[in-house]
Nucleic acid binder design. Structure first.
Lengths: 394, 394
DNA sequence: TTGTAAGCGTTATCAT
DNA sequence: ATGATAACGCTTACAA
């Protein structure tokens, strides 16, 4: 607990040496220094050593600006996202960062708050910087936007949303499959009245999931009733409102499927406040398996997939394009999902006797197929990932 | 649901025009184009218009690399963090991004996973890029590291951790005050045996908070017992283990203060699994007020402060340095905390009759003092923030 | 108000 | 195996 009393001397701020300074110090040409730095094989060992020593001695650092200007490559990738503080997104960012780091590329983070003008401004700035590629999370470019930016020659990968204009590669999650599994599981438990809380109206993924719900309800011969469907917007708040709304209507559901965990958890909160017991009175299933859902206090049954893998795949797809891969069309990676059964699901009240089927895993995870494996480039990141996915090519 | 059948034409990929192309197209010199782009006041209106039109027409974009090389300024800031997927950190990042966006600076995100070598590699790369400044979250540079990098002339701001070597500005939260308030509140409720779950051993903030706990226990004449203290590491898991550990010991506590919410919530989970009722059998208080803590299923009493404000302040401090502000010493911004009483605290079992004091807010938020207000630069960001803080100057 | 020209620090080409 | 030189695209004195 003793306090440091001597103020440490601030480090000296000195002029930054250039490659010419290093060359001069070594008595060689700048080209040679450059060759050493670039690990060119034909440099004499002795020269290499000398240069390396002087580099360290002088504290020389390349100027990326000059390097970039000369080579036309920036070594940076832009990541445009709507809301970085969404924990779901943070995981994706982490995955992206992981593979960029492996390739020593920089990640320029652009948080748009979902404003189109901010998205455009950022995209423009990224283009100014000659970013090697762009990853868009839950966002796209319209044709006009793409034209305005003139971003025809920069590879783009989108997450959770297509971008036909740019023929961008795309990674997403099999939302329909996940919802299907959720409904199927509830049907097997004996539920007939299964409600659905829709995601944000503007989101394609929300539509996919809703369509899958409808289809599954029909397939299993369950109650199909407009009063069982309520519009949410992917926020916890909206899930809470949705649950209250449902108990306002004629006949309450015996189960709720929400288009994401946040809404499911919001619903859980509202149900608790209404003293409706989960899973005794009603079962709840979410989608995403966010961190929170696994907590002992929550234990939400949900559709799981790896957020990190989404980031990993998006970045890998992008790196492949950056590294010059050509293909006839955009690639699409769709991550599989699996249903994780936790504590918020049980047979409906009336059927108390039926056994709960706890062990069931509807859509099981399987390994990447051979083609995906062959195509994967980033070995470091690949060895860390345990991504399960299907790769298709249009 | 009809599928789009016509594949849209991919946009044409064209050579990127330079400022010379624009100049030629306009019949003016490149200098003039540059002047227009830089909004120099003395350009003839007609010329300005012409140039702007041609710029749009050709889809010209400046080359940041060239610009950077020429001016020596990159317009980017590096953010070095340990774990982006930590929701607590994501909020900070959002705050930082907010003010950088306002100043049209880029944010280069570096996720170190808390590896020193990764931190160093990233810092080096950032320096290569001539970043205008660095923000370190929960990390520092040792003297050796700073020397090795030669980062004497780049402004650095640290979050949650000092960096004496570089005389870096610093922003943090008043951990001691928060813990003091928590213990005081519990004492007022009548608790005598208050346990403490420590944060990561290597973290200075963990030490601060523990010291504050000890001091407060003494000040209020509460039970001071080594058996009431258990080491955690800021993870939820460790909080869960800590709770179990506590109920392994001779006499259980009637309250637990954890050095962060994650551990408090982990403890909540373990307590639930042990069928120990909160707050009837034991009260729990956390620190951070993360998103999760406010959920109806959790309702954790906790020490609150604005994560976003931390980011906002860090970025503002940095921008001030970048804009050339000199001062005798490093600045420190310490955010105040407030105790948020929710559902996990109550008088100890024995004292059931005592009224719960729900309304008490121990450390109330007060407005920024005059000096802080005057010093604040970023008006846009400032208007958004409702940060309460103290600014000191050493 | 506009044009000329130098130079920022690299790397790539071509000689040697 | 190394060196000389040009060029990358821009900004900024300074000249006109």
């Amino acid at each position: 607990m003793s306090k440091q009393t001597t103020v440490p001397e601030p480090l000296e701020a000195t002029e930054r040496p250039t490659i010419l300074d290093v060359a001069a110090a070594c008595g060689v040409s700048p080209a040679t220094v450059s060759n050493v730095l670039a690990n060119k094989p034909y440099v004499k060992e002795q020269t290499r050593l000398l240069v390396q020593q002087k580099v360290a001695e002088l504290g020389y650092r390349v100027s990326r600006a000059a390097q970039s200007l000369r080579t036309g490559r920036s070594g940076s990738v832009g990541l445009i996202i709507g809301d970085i503080s969404n924990p779901y997104v943070a995981e994706i960012v982490r995955g992206v960062e992981e593979v960029l780091w492996a390739k020593r590329n920089n990640l320029i983070l652009c948080n748009t708050e979902f404003y189109a003008d901010r998205k455009m401004a950022y995209a423009g700035s990224l283009l100014d910087q000659h970013v090697e590629g762009l990853i868009l999370v839950s966002q796209t470019f319209s044709e006009d936007e793409a034209r305005l930016l003139g971003l025809a020659d920069v590879p783009v990968v989108t997450v959770n949303r297509p971008c036909e204009v740019l023929r961008a590669d795309q990674v997403g999650v099999d939302g329909a499959g996940g919802i299907r599994a959720a409904v199927q599981y509830l049907a097997q438990l004996g539920h007939q009245r299964i409600a659905f809380v829709k995601g944000a109206a503007s989101s394609p993924s929300a539509n996919d999931r809703y369509a899958a719900y409808r289809k599954a309800v029909r397939a299993h011969g369950l109650v199909s009733d407009a009063a069982l469907v309520v519009q949410g917007d992917y926020t916890m708040e909206s899930g809470s409102i949705a649950a209250r709304e449902l108990w306002t209507r004629e006949a309450a559901p015996t189960a709720i499927v929400a288009a994401n965990d946040l809404m499911a958890i919001g619903a859980l909160g509202a149900l608790k406040e209404m003293s409706i017991d989960v899973p005794r009175d009603v079962s709840v299933i979410g989608f995403d398996d966010i961190f929170l859902s696994n907590h002992p206090l929550v234990r939400l049954t949900t559709v799981h997939y790896s957020k990190r893998d989404i980031g990993l795949n998006a970045a890998r797809l992008l790196m492949r394009r950056i590294e010059g891969e050509r293909s006839d069309g955009p690639r699409t990676v769709t991550l599989d999902t699996s249903l994780i059964v936790r504590g918020t699901t049980a047979p409906p009240h009336a059927l108390k006797g039926v056994k709960p089927l706890r062990a069931l895993k509807v859509q099981k995870t399987h390994d990447a197929d051979a083609s995906a494996k062959t195509q994967a480039q980033s070995t470091r990141a690949a060895s860390i990932a345990r991504s399960s996915r299907r790769t298709s090519q249009s």
